[in-house]
Design a binder for these strands. Structure first.
Lengths: 239, 239
DNA sequence: GTCCTCCCTTGATCTTGATCAATCGTGCGC
DNA sequence: GCGCACGATTGATCAAGATCAAGGGAGGAC
């Protein structure tokens, strides 16, 4: 095993507890290592894939940060998600063999390329992997439903508070701070994801700052009261 | 093979071109017939499953009409989808072994119960079925993204027009009219799905009627101009 | 049949967030 | 260092849709 293949191996990746190989035994992990044929680097601002591109592979984010977005015929677009290390991108392409959204790197990034036919092949061999693939897809469905809830029935403040809590929770699972984060996306991208205009995002940030719940300096956010944010998302019901 | 098992067989079901068995060969279909262990009848207004219920099976809608909805701690809820014959319900439960939404019958309904461990088992055997299961999950993800687009960046009229077009298109795929439909859900449920209040739904219906695009009588809707609806969803961009 | 309930419609008013506009700050290229 | 471009902030105004309110119609229970 040469240096290169060690470098690409899931078994030696510090994300294996978050990423596709989660829960696999060493033997299964070895097989999966063979599937991860390559890494790919994506420059900030460029696309991992675009709408209409042929679907061949799933991608695991190894480093960096992505957004996925769908676009209408008349040019409006909607950010459907932000993906960080260990998360899987590309599931949208399975159904029609073509991608139905764009995946754009928000900072220089690297992904592991997992040819989907090989993932399917290995899934037939290992129950664990099969079930894990199903779980990953199901998780995406459940996440999407919670975004629908957010978009369909929350007000601007609730949306932004929920967004910050979600981000910081995912970052914390990756070993980062529970209270501090650097936003990798612009106010406009946050707004697109949350169904509000960039001005409203900015105003809502300012409101949270005034209320002493967070501190903001550009992309840097310090959450001073997680409780405060939670109360905004789920206001206590008056009896 | 007795009368009962003929009745439950996918191979003799008129939905087989829409439902899970789509694309299977006769041999594979036979095996799938064994997985579909039972049918279940659900009365109008009652639940196929509720949030928190243990996940065991996927359900294929055999007849009737469902809604799925998620609920927040403080009692707000959001309809995440409407399911008609041939569509699959329950994918949300895979990730955590528990359902994360309620599935409610909007009219007396019948579903085919497909124990998920058996679906997985058969998927390992048949590539066709495996891929089809993946496609069904991917289709749900893509659908969810288009709902996000709708909720995040469309105005009330656009949402309702897109909703009607989607409903009638799915009904047409099932052999119903391209221009007439009976709504199985209330204005409030439509509103919850589309992120608007029932009054706004009602007003928007009335507006379409005034404009001569549709005729409405309670739950009955006649689409007089599909083109008109399409123009509302995708207004031609002025050059 | 009659009553009752649920659902729908329509009107008047109010609120939230969008829009339009100006300014500022930061970081990058030269 | 300087200027430029992009992103962020903030203010003023406007409009879409929410909210509050009243009434009407269809269908089921009795």
């Amino acid at each position: 095993m040469d240096a290169q293949s060690i470098k690409v191996a899931c078994s030696s990746c510090n994300l294996r507890e978050l990423c596709l190989p989660m829960g696999l035994n060493p033997d299964e992990m070895d097989k999966l290592d063979n599937v991860i044929s390559a890494r790919r680097r994506i420059k900030r601002g460029s696309a991992l894939f675009n709408t209409g591109d042929r679907f061949t592979s799933l991608y695991a984010v190894r480093s960096g940060f992505f957004k996925t977005c769908v676009t209408t015929a008349d040019g409006r677009d909607q950010v459907t998600g932000f993906q960080m290390t260990g998360e899987i991108i590309g599931l949208d392409g399975i159904v029609s063999d073509r991608h139905s959204c764009d995946a754009i790197a928000l900072e220089d990034a690297e992904v592991c390329v997992m040819p989907f036919d090989q993932v399917e092949e290995l899934s037939r061999e290992f129950t664990t992997l099969q079930h894990h693939v199903h779980k990953i897809m199901s998780r995406e469905i459940v996440r999407d439903h919670s975004v629908m809830l957010l978009l369909g029935s929350m007000r601007a403040e609730e949306r932004l508070a929920a967004f910050l809590l979600n981000l910081v929770q995912r970052l914390h699972a990756r070993g980062f701070s529970q209270s501090e984060l650097i936003l990798r996306m612009t106010r406009e991208e946050i707004g697109s994801y949350l169904g509000m205009k960039l001005e409203t995002v900015s105003r809502t940030f300012s409101k949270f700052v005034e209320e002493g719940i967070i501190e903001v300096k550009q992309r840097y956010v310090h959450i001073k009261s997680t409780e405060g944010l939670k109360l905004i998302v789920n206001p206590p019901t008056c009896p």
